[in-house]
């Protein structure tokens, strides 16, 4: 047991010298960027589509009943589908239509489908957090639905939406590891690649683990920073610095 550990340590050190070279760094960096890009594209589009989906879900009137039902069906279904299952589904559907999409595109489409459903729910909860009387008041002043959303509701919903939406985004960075199952060359796939080349699993996947951390931790900090800023922005001419710093420290501890 003890010797086994020493052996692993020995191999780790021995391989490190030839593993941590420039070419591998470039390769890993590109894999890391693939991970990040597909998360950003997937969740970014998911955010936009999520807003559209919520808009339709909240459009009143009998005419929009089928649209509302479709949206609810969509959201409730795709929040329950495992990402890997959806990934295979998208891949084989795309192939079934005879389309020659890259694996990266297929991964992005799958992420968008899932993140639209999840972020849509987050946005809906955020809008619901703004009191109905704000709608009535804007209504009575002849605001249109879009004007009310833009000037009154979204600015208030924003601080309720942002933290969970950002948490979803950061969480999805690691979930994209599943795309390695269909062969997308991202971080996890890169780990597998090096492992297959003969580097020890600890070396390959340990490095990948560290890179995931490097990717997601700054994102988490960015989220905290935006959140703190959001809470204090309107008091910009007064105590922004102190208030911002306090909120920041509180979240940090």
């Amino acid at each position: 047991m003890y010797e086994g550990f020493l052996d692993i340590f020995d191999v780790f050190l021995e391989q490190s010298a030839e593993f941590y070279v420039w070419d591998n760094a470039v390769y890993l960096f590109r894999a890391m960027m693939t991970t990040l890009t597909m998360t950003i594209i997937g969740c970014g589009l998911g955010f936009i589509f999520g807003m559209i989906v919520v808009y339709f879900r909240r459009t009143p009137g009998l005419m929009f009943w089928p649209v509302r039902m479709t949206v609810i069906f969509y959201v409730e279904t795709f929040r329950r589908v495992p990402f890997l299952v959806l990934l295979f589904l998208v891949m084989f559907t795309v192939k079934g239509f005879g389309l020659d999409f890259s694996l990266f595109t297929i991964a992005c489409i799958s992420i968008v489908i899932i993140s639209t459903a999840f972020i849509g729910e987050i946005i809906r909860a955020g809008l619901d957090s703004v009191h109905q009387t704000q709608w009535d008041t804007a209504d009575a002043m002849n605001f249109s639905r879009l004007q009310t959303l833009r000037h009154v509701i979204l600015p208030q919903a924003w601080k309720v939406v942002l933290p969970p939406a950002f948490a979803f985004f950061v969480m999805f960075i690691k979930d994209t590891a599943l795309t390695s199952q269909v062969g997308v060359l991202e971080l996890t796939q890169a780990g597998k690649y090096y492992n297959n080349l003969g580097y020890s699993a600890i070396l390959s996947f340990g490095t990948v683990l560290v890179l995931y951390f490097i990717l997601s931790y700054p994102m988490t900090r960015l989220g905290w920073w935006m959140e703190a800023r959001l809470h204090t922005r309107r008091r910009d001419e007064r105590a922004e610095f102190e208030v911002g710093a306090t909120a920041y420290e509180l979240r940090g501890t």
Binding site: D136, M141, Q147, V152
Partner: peptide, 26 residues
Amino acid sequence: SIVFQQFNLFQNMDALRNVTIAPVKI
């Protein structure tokens, strides 16, 4: 114009903006 029991000011705007938004934007 209607004034409500619970004031219903727009929480994301200061007093002046609450007063000016509808005349300006709407």
